[in-house]
Design a protein around this nucleic acid. Sequence first.
RNA 1: GGCCCGAUGGCAGAGUGGUUAUGCAGAGGACUGCAAAUCCUUGUACGUCGGUUCGAUUCCGGCUCGGGCCUCCA
Length: 473
Amino acid sequence: MKLMITNTLERKKVPFEPIDPSRVRMYVCGPTVYDYAHVGNARPAVVFDVVARLLRRLYGDAQVTHVANITDIDDKINARARESGRSIGEITDETAAAYRADMDAIGVNKPNEEPRATHHIDQMIAMAERLIELGHAYAADGHVLFNVPSMPDYGELSRRDRDEMVAGARVEVAPYKRDPADFVIWKPSDAETPGWESPWGRGRPGWHIECSAMAEAYLGEVFDIHGGGLDLIFPHHENEIAQSRCAHGTERMANYWMHNGFVTVEGEKMSKSLGNFYTVHDLLEEWPGEVIRFLLLSAHYRAPLDFSQAGLRESKAQLDRLYEALDLTRDVPTVSEKSSLPNLEDAMVSVDTPSSDYIAEALCDDLNTPLAISRLHYLVSRLNTAQAEDKPRIKASLLQGAELLGLLRSTPDQWFRGETEGISPIEIERLLGDRAKAREAKNFAEADRIRDVLKNEGIEIKDSPEGPTWKRA
RNA sequence: GGCCCGAUGGCAGAGUGGUUAUGCAGAGGACUGCAAAUCCUUGUACGUCGGUUCGAUUCCGGCUCGGGCCUCCA
């Protein structure tokens, strides 16, 4: 089983070879913290969470370093602070905490590091100075600018021709730029704007330098995987590459670049002006976090994903099927499956004796999460039809496979009968007791009446040889 | 204008040069006092026009339609 990844640098699917198998390093661009995370922020978080889970499975938990930054210095944050009269620290601390809570709710493991931009200003200034020394950047008018012509192969990631880019540029070129394509590394701050002392006066970092500096700080000069949304390819990632490679004199910043596709909402581009964006925070009012996560994983990560109410309902229905199988096997113990992990090279992947490797194999093909989910369903079918002696093994495979996707984290009890608003379990049990008496007396009209009463409360009753059970629909 | 994606059955969504996933929804059946769940069976697909091929939904080209980036954006 070999991990294949579509590398944006090459525009094709290639085998993944870490620089150092004992230390697999991944950097993912995280959110700018000025407002609740929306589903467009959640998609890369979930996608790269699965990448991290898979890497940990393949190379060992301790061998993987997953870094996802928190951008807490940005002009959007400054604007928000001015509008609300609140301090920047207050806004970013609160939003970062809300982000972490939302990510927990949708099953995103905490990365090894979640560095904050404001904690790495010194590193950014140091990198800017180094770039100036090496002739790749210059100070002008309180700014530090990266000089794009100083890098002959600038544009390799986005495959952009610099001259065409400049010709088609819609923005006016600032007078202090030597070249129209030059971009800001450091810019001056006025008295009302947050700033730090620097060799070029009081100022703040440009957009791209934080990632270059923090990636260097936590992962070194060249690392394995750099991820983020498709829209970051240009200019953000292109400019990160320019800064890091020129500062370090390396051929690569990261060997593999992975980019997830966009999220649309009800078929339309999600935008603040249309007001059609879903925040994770709001969605969690109505849906279990796992439903949100499932929907985000139901399409391949590079394909566009339409986030819709219909999709949420579908995701809930599919998860119900998976949990139903766990509910039916609640008394079946799980046995730890035989596996050659973490050495997957020789792992047997067989339809006849499915193991969680069957799920891992699907993910190894450029993170084919829809295929992995279909294999979860296959394991469920196998579990539902298996002989009793085979169930423990299959159940274990299902749970371990689901864990790679960060799914099936609840118990069936929590999933179907968890505490929510509405009728209490005690009341439900009382009505079920009444119904049992009615059934015993063959008073089926009364039994059905009670079923209807519960149904109106959103409770489904299921009779079984061991007695009735119930769940919230 | 430049660059880059995509077009699969009612819906979602994989995949493949020949035997046509998976789930939801639909139909029939088994089981059940009824129901639910489960199991069995089942229907409807590969935008369009050409090319390559013994054979293309799958490879190549044109076209149409849709989307993204080029400016803050996950």
